[in-house]
Write a protein that binds this DNA or RNA. Structure first.
Lengths: 104, 104
DNA sequence: TCGACGATTAGCTAATCATCGAAATGATGT
DNA sequence: ACATCATTTCGATGATTAGCTAATCGTCGA
């Protein structure tokens, strides 16, 4: 749980997850959305992998990342339930996220 | 939002919030639940204050901390809504939390 | 005023983090 | 075999973090 929140404490990583909500993407495709070096992105991926928030699969020379929604949901739910909240499926289907800024 | 998740990424701080869910408490009363020095606890409080997750009020020589549920809720909700989730009032009223371990 | 008490600040160490450029790895195509 | 491309690993740097002890601040009661 700590590792999940730690992963979520960085705006770049939150936006990576937001991107992966649309569909699985290669490391390079994700990296193209950010203005940091590839090693830095790779490190962010490692943190997300460590938190088990993403799965990675090597396909030829690219690596495809995929979000693990259930892990994210369980962590959020596990914490929210401590405070008497439940996590409900939202009324609106997740809007196709246009390229957006992340809240600092 | 980053500051909130950062604050939540530490088990001690999560447990502090869990304690404060019962009722407002003094710094010392909270600290009594943990096996770290008071200065360390004070630093944790500072992080929680920085994230605006708690309010502090000086009463005589003690400082009373109070959780700011709405801030916690807004942060959680704000993030969850990116993934098509809503935060619902739980069916079960927050159980009087016995002294419990925090998930690492 | 003095001493005790609750809490924070100061000052330090060790560990972790985000970031980079350069180099290594691994797969593909010529 | 070789060049190329995608990604990760290595090594370094500066910033931040959690933790401690010792010192300080503010308040209360004797």
């Amino acid at each position: 749980m700590s590792t999940v929140f730690k992963a979520l404490s960085d705006p770049t990583r939150r936006k990576v997850l937001e991107l992966l909500r649309q569909r699985p993407m290669s490391a390079g495709e994700i990296a193209a959305h950010f203005d940091v070096s590839k090693p830095t992105m790779s490190a962010h991926f490692a943190v997300l992998r460590e938190a088990d928030l993403v799965a990675s699969e090597k396909q030829g020379k690219t690596v495809i990342y995929q979000i693990k929604m259930s892990v994210l949901e369980d962590a959020l739910l596990g914490f929210a339930s401590m405070f008497g909240w439940e996590l409900k499926e939202g009324a609106s289907p997740p809007p196709p996220p246009a390229d957006k800024e992340v809240t600092e």
